[in-house]
Design a protein around this nucleic acid. Structure first.
Length: 455
RNA sequence: GAGGGCGUAGCUCAGUAGGUUAGAGCGACAGUUUGUGGCACUGUAGGCCGUGGGUUCGAGACCCAUCGUUCUCCCCA
């Protein structure tokens, strides 16, 4: 038999890791709930058509598809062979695969809203914390199975929602003690830029190119623009656009000058100003950075977009989101605008681990270990232990009679801070000896006083 | 999808230029020590050197393939 293994890009989480991850989940969840969001869960798998075509060409390739059952059914052979031909040609076939693992939480949410629009109370605010799967090649900070924590609001165009989501980001990362900056931009501004530099249809080429700026530098971006058919004067507008610097207010006024009276540009700037202005009053403004190079890969965004970057850490974005004005129309229900954000828990974990930001207190080992010193002793000890458990003190008893040495080491390795010794001597005196492993201090306590002992 | 690094004991790794019976530290187990741990000392167990082929008198080492893993690019959280 070969050595056991798990699929590439997936992980097992041991007790310590689970507790740390739960700490992140719990922190984010509590903030979501504080802001009036309610939970939703959707299935791990969706129908393939629900997902295809929603994430761009690259995204489609990264969707994990599930092979249909019953492919060995001889009655369906012709259908299946025909489907296989389509697959070989790079197309999808429901004869071969009709389900896939979810790629993110936003599209399943849009699907849910479209299916349940009659029942939902709008504006509908939901949060969702579940794993997603991507058939990407794993590398640092990138896994094939990872969790997202999303909060979305649909059925409202108000920018107060954007304001609220920024506040969620900032307060959640403050609670986690993780310093971040929230980059903010607007797809309308990118659209305006595209209109000025050769037309709306260039929007995607343009955003892909400028998104690479901090990675490859202006010269390479210029080259890419050139290859995509942008002329010299258009390239120089883009260069001016990318070189805008200063405080948020300065950047926005310089941008306004560059975009002139372009309608989308003016709207985009106005929206950014609205959000920044609201957060002057909350004091959260200092975490917000207007960044016109921010583009985001997903093409369903239409308004303000966000991305969260951990400060002083070698890690890509640890969260992102934005406004999508018509996501449910993909499922035949038009005119439900929405805006949402996502936390990348696995990357947040990696950054917090690297920077040592987890509090000591999240280790949830039992507080007390009862020694097992024989049949009669264990029976009495067990009854005493149950009284402590009734007081919500986490306890366990060593399951077999073993040498002191061994039982001590067990407690030490599991991080249990107190041991209770009930041996023959204690038994005859109806008492026990409690030893604190950190201090080495030992106390003799009568059985009737044990439940009230302060560990 | 493209390219690089690494696979030796449970873990972290040595293993010189190809040469007898593949090593260390940590961990595990046992003992010194049958009711008071952490230290120390002694001992024991544990390896198809990722897998398959090839070169050679001889391969853990060299070559090819394959699988796994990790990193970079693309893209993304």
């Amino acid at each position: 038999m070969s050595k056991p293994s798990i699929p590439q890009g997936t992980r097992d989480f041991n007790a310590e890791v689970v507790q740390k991850r739960q700490y992140i989940f719990q922190t984010i969840r509590s903030v979501f709930e504080l802001y009036g969001f309610q939970p939703l869960e959707t299935p791990a798998m969706e129908n393939l058509d629900t997902l295809m075509g929603k994430y761009g060409e690259e995204g489609d390739k990264l969707i994990f598809k599930i092979l249909n059952n019953g492919l060995d059914n001889p009655q369906k052979k012709d259908q299946i062979m025909e489907g296989y031909e389509k697959v070989l040609a790079g197309k999808n076939s429901t004869a071969i695969t009709e389900r896939a693992l979810r790629y993110d939480l936003t599209i399943p949410f849009a699907r849910y809203v479209a299916m349940n629009q009659g029942q939902l109370v709008f504006p509908f605010k939901r949060y969702q914390i579940q794993p997603v799967w991507r058939a990407d090649r794993p590398q640092k900070g990138r896994y094939r199975e990872f969790y997202q924590c999303d909060a979305d609001i649909v059925g409202s165009e108000s920018l107060i929602n954007e304001v609220d989501l920024v506040a969620i980001y900032i307060s959640a990362f403050e609670k986690l003690n993780l310093p971040v900056e929230i980059k903010i931009n607007n797809r309308k501004i990118l659209l305006a830029l595209a209109q000025i530099c050769g037309g709306e249809d260039k929007l995607i080429d343009l955003t892909i190119a400028i998104d690479k700026l901090d990675k490859i530098g202006w010269e390479k971006v210029k080259e890419e623009l050139n290859n995509k058919g942008f002329n010299e004067s258009q390239q120089s507008i883009v260069e001016t656009y990318l070189n805008i610097s200063g405080s948020n207010a300065e950047k926005l006024s310089k941008l306004a000058a560059l975009l002139g009276n372009n309608e989308h540009g003016a709207k985009g700037i106005e929206e950014l100003n609205y959000v920044l202005d609201y957060h002057k009053a909350t004091g959260m403004q200092k975490h917000l950075v207007a960044d016109f190079t921010l583009a985001r890969g997903l093409n369903y965004y239409t308004g303000i977009i966000f991305e969260v970057k951990a400060l002083d850490a070698q890690m890509g974005s640890i969260g992102g989101g934005g406004r999508y004005n018509d996501l449910t129309s993909l499922f035949g229900v038009p005119n439900i605008p929405g805006v949402g954000i996502s936390f990348g828990v696995d990357r947040i974990y990696d950054v917090m681990e690297e920077k040592n930001l987890f509090p000591e207190s999240i280790n949830k080992a039992a507080q007390v270990l009862f020694f097992n010193l024989g049949v009669a002793e264990a029976k009495v000890a067990y009854a005493q232990m149950m009284q402590l458990r009734a007081k919500k003190i986490a306890c366990e008893m060593y399951p077999e009679k073993s040498k002191f040495d061994k039982q001590f080491k067990y407690a030490e390795k599991k991080g249990i801070h107190n041991i209770v010794i009930i041996g023959a001597d204690e038994l005859s005196n109806a008492c026990c000896n409690i030893k604190n492993l950190a201090t080495g201090k030992q106390t003799t306590v009568q059985f009737q006083d044990l439940p009230n002992f302060q560990f």
